[in-house]
């Protein structure tokens, strides 16, 4: 088990080194590249913490966040140039350093004061999991025991997209989200963007399908779908529908609606909102997950694309 400890130590050091560099480096662009690397490392850390579902999510969402930040760093470069040279005052840095140190020290103290044996809900989960028919305990928590969180989370995504869209200039409202990109179709990258999405979609459906019993599920799969959609959009192969489109809006709320409808059906059929009738839990959960995967995929992709900017933005 020596190897495991060495690996974990190295990982922890690397994570901290990359994080510190991300905070300290001068160029914003370099910081965003560092952040992408950081996301990769975290995925490995999650594996070492025996949380493969979280590792998958981190790997997937980390890439989307990386793209979002990289693109923003490139777009903001001209106006941020002045800020890059700005050094914060020593007093501010001292203050921030003290505060940061206090927080870290407190948390470190808490780490050593956590109770032994650690409280855990594993017994309750394993006792109840059989009634859901799911092999993956995390999916059982997400879609049965704590289904309201997952439902609300889907709503969070919709709220965030509404908020992003609300930033559109008045004149551009109703148009196609994002700034239009001319795709050089003869280019090697366009060729690759044709090759990659089909592979990605297959992988996404695989990740979704195994999610009931093994690590995986709708978030991870939805993120992969979003990434593939973004690739195709950037290569000019497809175009996102305009924000005024009713069809698009139905697609965005589809997952939430299915979730809500089946949750409500639980009231007469299973005795409570968000309860599943005896023996029906697994198929119903798969149905919810399938609908949510599509909605989540579309929402995440559009969140990265941004608000409809019209012609103004280059």
């Amino acid at each position: 088990m020596m190897a495991g400890l060495v690996l974990d130590g190295l990982l922890a050091l690397l994570v901290l080194a990359v994080a510190a560099w991300t905070i300290g480096v001068c160029q914003t662009f370099a910081a965003t590249v560092g952040f992408t690397v950081y996301g990769l490392l975290l995925a490995v850390v999650w594996m070492r913490l025996a949380a493969p579902d979280a590792a998958l999510t981190e790997a997937a969402i980390g890439a989307l966040t990386g793209v979002l930040l990289l693109r923003a760093a490139i777009q903001l470069a001209p106006s941020e140039a002045g800020l890059n040279r700005l050094r914060p005052a020593l007093k501010l840095r001292l203050l921030a350093g003290t505060l940061a140190f206090a927080i870290t020290a407190t948390l470190a103290a808490v780490v050593f004061h956590l109770p032994e044996p650690a409280p855990t809900l594993v017994p309750q989960v394993t006792a109840q999991q059989a009634s859901t028919g799911l092999g993956n305990a995390v999916t059982a928590v997400l879609l049965a025991f704590r289904a309201i969180d997952t439902l609300l989370e889907a709503v969070v995504l919709i709220f965030a997209l509404v908020a992003v869209w609300s930033l559109a200039p008045d004149a551009a409202w109703g148009g196609i989200p994002g700034a239009q990109i001319k795709g050089g179709s003869g280019d090697v990258r366009a060729y690759l963007s044709r090759l990659l999405p089909p592979v990605g979609i297959v992988i996404a459906f695989y990740i979704f399908w195994v999610g009931a019993d093994f690590p995986g599920g709708k978030f991870q799969a939805g993120t992969l779908l979003a990434a593939m959609g973004l690739l195709a959009t950037m290569a000019g192969l497809i175009q996102p529908p305009p924000v005024a489109s009713r069809g698009l809006r139905w697609a965005l709320v589809l997952g939430t609606l299915v979730f809500l409808a089946l949750g409500l059906a639980g009231m007469p059929l299973a005795g409570a909102f968000l309860a599943y009738p005896e023996g029906w839990a697994k198929p119903l959960i798969l149905l919810i997950e399938a609908a949510s995967m599509l909605s989540i995929g579309v929402t995440l992709g559009l969140l990265v694309i941004g608000y409809p900017a019209g012609q103004a933005e280059q």
């Binding site: 809900l121 309750q124 989960v125 109840q128 928590v141 049965a144 025991f145 704590r146 289904a147 309201i148 969180d149 639980g266 299973a270 005795g271 409570a272 909102f273 968000l274 309860a275 599943y276």
Partner: peptide, 13 residues
């Protein structure tokens, strides 16, 4: 009080 999904806390909400 309403137990969502009829699951008891701390597992349920």
């Amino acid at each position: 009080v309403y137990l969502l999904g009829a699951w008891q806390p701390p597992l349920g909400i």
